[in-house]
Design a protein around this nucleic acid. Structure first.
Lengths: 216, 216
DNA sequence: TGTACATCAGTGAACGCGCGTTCACTGATGTAC
DNA sequence: TGTACATCAGTGAACGCGCGTTCACTGATGTAC
């Protein structure tokens, strides 16, 4: 018996179960949407009782928030992987990576943005912070492209770009109000970034034009 | 007794009750959000029984959809009121009017965009059509500004602009993920339109700049 | 190594509540004569 | 105008179901000696 902190058999099982529950919950949200997530379904699919879910997560919101937390983390990891050599390409890359991630995990992203807590409890700060950090990834390339702009303006611009791109993608993928065929979304996003950068006085990559070359 | 189609006393009462129910429901959605709308509350506040609500609307979705329908109608009316003399000013006007309407009726707009039907029944076509018509109001000014662009490109551009502005406003008003102080939202929208029009090669109004004049 | 006791995760039936929906009944309004 | 009957909106208690949550109990794992 060594004294190094070691996981007991109990703790290992508990940990595996926890992972299992989260995995199942994520699968259900991803496939059928947050509104279709039920404790009983999770418990059954995870091969345990509903009590165990409560044992591990306190309440059902705990499960949802864990999934959402991991969703931001995965998104952030993907965004961090965008090459940063060229700031213009980086901005395109961030937008396209967001699109790809959103398209692949639409219901997970919706869960992240739409989940409301019970009885007005506040949304966990760490998750909000991670979302902020994620779109702060636009700051460095923007600073490089607009060396004269101060921090406040960069921050505002990055919020604008994020919200705009988010709006185009989320309404676009919904296919309800704004009927854009999914295969055109990428083109639409590229066009958007192109035009917006041009408006900032930055020459874009000129992809998928309107027949109008920005800053020709 | 004349034969001209006249409303019976019964019909009048029925009609007033219907208006009353819709009015109450709108008030509740607007004040507390769609999720807080309950048949019993509506009936009590309207001074009738829950049965009457069902009598008039078939099911509860019927009430919600009626409110949503009137929301798009009100929005469209406001957007049609934007002066059309100058196409550039018209585009700014449409964006700002949308912002004002959204800010004043945030929960009604959210109800319009977020409401999902029970058991996958399709969302009523007339409402979807009205939303499409609303943002098709951008077409004429865009056509005037970009006479060389074909219809498809104009349509795509208007969808992009609508989604982007919608994203900026809806995330902005939510104050959760994207913490923009409400009084800055107007400035943010103006800046966005400014920059995007500049990117399209159109001189904007140059409001609220980044310290960078588009197409200087 | 073995035994006795302590701990604590796991269990799932039962609880409780919210809430949309129904339906047999009532009574006001409309119609016929 | 009055009376008798028909119609149909209005009523609200009761239904039914979904679903998050609890809790007394079980049994596996850990600890002490």
């Amino acid at each position: 018996m060594n004294n190094v902190q070691e996981e007991s058999l109990r703790d290992q099982k508990k940990f595996r179960r926890r992972l299992q529950i989260v995995e199942i919950a994520r699968g259900i949200i991803s496939a059928k949407g947050l509104r279709s997530l039920k404790v009983r379904d999770v418990a059954e699919a995870a091969g345990c009782s509903v009590g165990s879910v409560y044992n591990e997560f306190g309440d059902f919101d705990g499960v949802i928030l864990t999934v959402n937390r991991e969703t931001v983390q995965a998104l952030t990891a993907r965004l961090r992987g965008v090459p940063a050599e060229d700031p213009v390409r980086q901005l395109y890359g961030l937008a396209e990576t967001y699109l790809d991630f959103f398209a692949a995990h639409a219901n997970l992203l919706r869960s992240l943005f739409e989940h409301r807590m019970e009885d007005d409890r506040p949304y966990p700060d760490d998750i909000l912070q991670m979302v902020m950090d994620a779109f702060a990834l636009m700051h460095p390339p923007l600073v490089r492209l607009l060396p004269d702009a101060d921090d406040v303006k960069i921050a505002l611009l990055s919020r604008t770009l994020f919200s705009a791109v988010h709006g185009i993608i989320s309404l676009g993928l919904e296919e309800r109000m704004v009927a854009v065929p999914p295969q055109m979304l990428r083109q639409q996003i590229e066009q958007f970034v192109d035009t917006h950068l041009a408006g900032l006085g930055i020459a874009g990559l000129g992809i998928a034009g309107l027949g109008i070359r920005p800053l020709r």
